[in-house]
Design a protein around this nucleic acid. Structure first.
Length: 878
RNA sequence: GCCCAGUUAGCUCAGUGGUUAGAGUACUUGCUUGACAUGCAAGAGGUCGCUGGUUCAAGUCCAGCACUGGGCACCA
């Protein structure tokens, strides 16, 4: 075994081994219970990023943990066809080749997307394999495969037939870049500093005019009215007047609508029903014409007359100029307002009137709220529930149609004869209303999130209700980032309840997104993106995974720092070396079976086994409660701070046979047991290094061929007495080391050490375990007793009720020692002052629990004793 | 505007009403100590954002405020 842990070959080796052995597929376990999860499907365009890494590491920890606990685990991996995102990527690729989508046509385009999918779609799977995740690859799914198409159509048709899905002409968010409708949540809003233009709208008769403020002057091309508040005095006597739209010359009626805010701008509002959601409603109320002025690509259409063909912002510029030239522009003010961008291509979104498909959300949302309120789904951390409720309670109908080519085509046919819609799983032969054969399939496809909302059951074969569906649905747990809480999680809950009658998952674990060191969102444009694959290569996958988990908090962004990964690389190396040490000392371990029944176990053994036992309980309960960073820290602390720093150090002398064969064997057994059990608990976090070492450790009957399928450790060896004894010894050792360091005693120099106490119990502990003290403090001569008189020129200290003396003779610097003791005295005085105050308060004595009072009083006595001894020493030195 | 989260060591973060508020990292000092210098030992470093309240007891619970980050909704 080399001195350093070298992850590369080891990781590859075990990943292949596990897959070959088919450990990732569900196998009936000891518990007969199941544990199931579906992976949030990455986009087929996706390249592994930090978010995937965290998300999948969390799931992998749970999968491995539950598997070791004896559950039958199913973890379904999959990828998402990601409609718009994928279409954009493939389209860009076409442009590079001098082609475009319209040139090659829909069929050819989709053929190319499929080709692209075959080529790159599973790239992310191989990257996930590097991460060591243990999902069931044979269950892999794709949101566009036959299974899912069937589920999608089934859901669509049922929703349509039950009146949840409708089609109509409404204002939706239109992305001129992607040239499709978007749902409300697919628009990202940001503050923008822009201008507010004040435009004169002249009356048809006379020379007067109204001034109207707008941020989007180009939309005036679609104005069909001017509105004022009915109670606004300024406009009261203008009833029935008509205005002329500048530049265009169209006559506009002046109407009155409660919606108008008299306080804003001039109190008069231009109404553009086809390009503003509020104006749309006003238009409906007042039966105004709806004039669409935009082409799908964001250029002005023929309704814009002389401006036809202009790009929308060019048009704005020109209109403003012309208004100015012709005296229609009163003024321009600076104004900050909100603009919406497409979440895929970041193009500014336009409110746009067009025929689209929608799902009525009211009832579905109501059921989904109810299920969470009734705690059928547990949110972790629970505060996310509030966001969930808020969004669900204020939900709008979901625009599900997209004017793109890549996706599930909407199973609807328009009858050219009677203009009615026939919806059907398979292509219908005739119109279901008039029987006409002249049918035209709807060209729109469904929102990507429509198919992903079915994911927890569509992956399990729904609408079929086969064995797997029955066995693994509802799933046990879903892990997701909060960024897709509304896009995905909420919708799965609604669809799951609607179509299976059950919640899609019992628990939802919502993890943070990973920000950079400053806590900012990682993005390509900011250039602060960290590549997980590079980190895995540099520090090893285990260290990388561990850093993701140990860093994780509940706050929405976790700050990621490479420093920490390096720290956990060092931790992996520490484990490696602790194991190396153990293995080097197991030559005669064949005796282990005999040792199992041995009664003789040393204090340090009892101590480490006790610490180990309480660790097993904490780790199990933490993981069951979906706490991840806590167990990670506990394991780190135990392995490094207890097992390595203390146990291994204490056991060295025994392994060198200084205490006889029996003691050596016991040490070997304990080392091996504790190491093995700890590795098992660490396995979900650091799968590779733990497997590598496990394979090298001696087998016993419970451990089969891999740590992955070994049983989760349980241990009942808590021993409070042993812990107390060890604590005393450790304190003394640490105190002696401190003195050595403060007194600048060279590390090589052996000292004499006197330990004085009148407590019989402590005397026994010290005598029985004097070797611990001798070995860890470099002591030559150790004297333990209750009537020891320290030699003059000793340094002293006190822990518990044990007085420590180190004779230094002429080496001692009296002044320095006095200073040290005085500093101790000050500290003691301070502590005692507060403690005495506390213990003497009548309210404390009457209301605090008696146990605590007793403890505090004992503490006070101990402090008083300590102070007395300290004062004695100081007097002696004067 | 409404909502959520956060504010603890230089930095990144733990902290479950009850010892002297912890860890990693960085820093200082000393060490090639028979697993490990990716290491070992010791040390320094804190008005727990502010103000009140509840309590025998508050970093922890409650209220208000400030600041930071985020989400949602908005008037052209």
């Amino acid at each position: 075994m080399q001195k350093r842990y070298e992850p590369e070959e080891i990781e590859k080796k075990w990943q292949d081994f596990w897959e070959e052995k088919d450990y990732f597929s569900p196998h009936p376990g000891r518990k007969k219970d199941t544990f199931s999860m579906v992976m949030p499907p990455p986009n087929i365009t996706g390249v592994l990023h930090m978010g995937h890494a965290l998300n999948n590491t969390l799931q992998d920890i749970m999968a491995r943990f539950k598997r070791m606990q004896g559950y039958e685990v199913l973890w379904v991996p999959g990828i998402d066809h990601a409609g718009i995102a994928t279409q954009n990527v493939v389209e860009r690729d076409l442009v590079k080749k001098g082609l475009n989508r319209k040139k090659i046509g829909r069929e050819e385009f989709n053929k190319r997307v499929w080709e692209w999918k075959e080529k790159y779609g599973e790239r992310i799977f191989s990257q996930l394999k590097n991460l060591g995740i243990s999902c069931s690859w044979e269950h892999r799914s794709f949101t566009m495969d036959k299974k899912h198409s069937k589920a999608v159509r089934e859901v669509f048709i049922q929703l349509y037939k039950q009146g949840y899905i409708y089609r109509g002409n409404y204002i939706i968010n239109w992305c001129p870049g992607c040239q499709t409708a978007l749902s409300d949540i697919e628009v990202e809003y940001e503050e923008k500093r822009g201008k507010l233009y004040y435009i004169k709208y002249p009356f048809k008769k006379g020379k007067r005019y109204l001034i109207i403020a707008t941020t989007r002057p180009e939309t005036m091309l679609g104005d069909t009215a001017v509105a004022a508040h009915p109670k606004d005095e300024r406009f009261k006597n203008l009833q029935g007047k008509r205005l002329i739209l500048p530049l265009i010359g169209r006559e506009l009626p002046l109407i009155y609508d409660e919606y108008v805010d008299p306080e804003f701008g001039t109190g008069a509002l231009k109404v553009t029903p086809a390009h503003d959601p509020n104006d749309f409603l006003i238009g409906k109320r007042h039966n105004l014409p709806f004039i669409n002025i935009l082409n799908p690509d964001g250029t002005i259409n023929k309704e814009g007359r002389i401006y036809e063909g202009l790009e929308r912002f060019k048009c704005r510029e020109r209109i403003v100029n012309e208004l100015k030239e012709r005296g229609y522009l009163k003024k321009i003010e600076d104004y900050t307002y909100r603009i919406g961008r497409c979440y895929r291509c970041k193009t500014l979104v336009e409110p746009y009137l067009s025929p689209q498909w929608f799902i009525k959300m009211g009832d579905l949302a109501h059921q989904a709220i109810k299920a969470v309120k009734e705690e059928k789904i547990e949110f972790v951390p629970s505060f996310w529930k509030k966001s969930y409720f808020q969004w669900m309670e204020d939900i709008h109908d979901w625009c599900i149609s997209r004017q793109i080519w890549w996706g599930h085509q909407i199973p609807a046919w328009f009858c050219q004869d009677c203009e009615k819609i026939t919806v059907s799983i398979n292509e219908p032969e005739e119109c279901s209303y008039c029987g006409g054969k002249n049918l035209k399939e709807d060209e729109d496809v469904l929102d990507t999130w429509f198919s992903s909302s079915l994911w927890p059951f569509s992956t399990l074969g729904w609408p079929g209700k086969g064995k797997e569906f029955k066995k693994f649905y509802s799933t046990s747990l879903l892990c997701s980032g909060w960024d897709i809480l509304f896009f995905w999680v909420s919708r799965m809950i609604m669809m799951g309840l609607k179509f299976t009658g059950k919640v899609p998952f019992h628990k939802i674990y919502i993890h943070p997104l990973i920000g950079d060191e400053k806590g900012k969102k990682m993005s390509k444009s900011k250039g602060n993106v960290v590549d997980p694959l590079a980190l895995m290569e540099k520090y090893g996958t285990d260290a990388f995974r561990f850093s993701l988990i140990a860093l994780k908090t509940d706050s929405p962004y976790t700050r990621f720092s490479e420093e920490r990964v390096r720290g956990y690389r060092n931790f992996a190396n520490k484990i490696w070396n602790a194991s190396r040490f153990t293995l080097m000392n197991l030559q005669d371990f064949q005796l282990q079976k005999k040792l199992k029944n041995k009664k003789y176990i040393e204090l340090s053994d009892r101590w480490i086994l006790s610490r180990y036992s309480s660790l097993t309980k904490k780790i199990s309960s933490n993981l069951n409660n979906l706490l991840f960073s806590e167990p990670a820290q506990l394991l780190y602390q135990f392995i490094w701070g207890e097992f390595c720093d203390w146990y291994i150090e204490l056991v060295k002398m025994r392994l060198l046979n200084k205490k006889g064969a029996e003691s050596r064997y016991t040490a070997q057994w304990t080392l091996c047991q504790v190491l093995k059990g700890t590795l098992k608990m660490l396995h979900p976090f650091m799968p590779f290094i733990t497997e590598e070492i496990f394979q090298r450790l001696p087998e016993d009957k419970d451990d089969k061929e891999s740590i992955m399928i070994s049983s989760w450790p349980e241990s009942e060896r808590e021993d409070e007495g042993a812990e107390k004894k060890m604590n005393l010894l450790m304190e003394i050792i640490q105190e002696v080391r401190t003195i050595r360091s403060e007194m600048k005693i060279p590390p090589q120099k052996e000292i004499d050490l006197l330990l004085k106490t009148s407590d019989k119990k402590n005397l026994n502990i010290l005598r029985e375990n004097n070797s611990y003290i001798v070995n860890l403090t470099k002591t030559k001569q150790l004297l333990i007793g209750k009537d020891i008189t320290p030699i003059k020129g000793s340094v002293s200290s006190l822990t518990g009720n044990v007085e420590i003396f180190i004779p230094l003779k002429d080496l001692i610097d009296i002044e320095k020692e006095k200073k040290r003791l005085k500093k101790d005295r000050e500290k003691l005085n301070r502590e005692l002052f507060f403690l005495e105050k506390k213990v003497s308060q009548p309210q404390f004595l009457s209301k605090a629990p008696p146990e605590l009072i007793k403890e505090e009083k004992e503490k006070r006595e101990a402090l008083q004793h300590k102070l007395k001894k300290l004062k004695q020493r100081l007097e002696e030195m004067e």
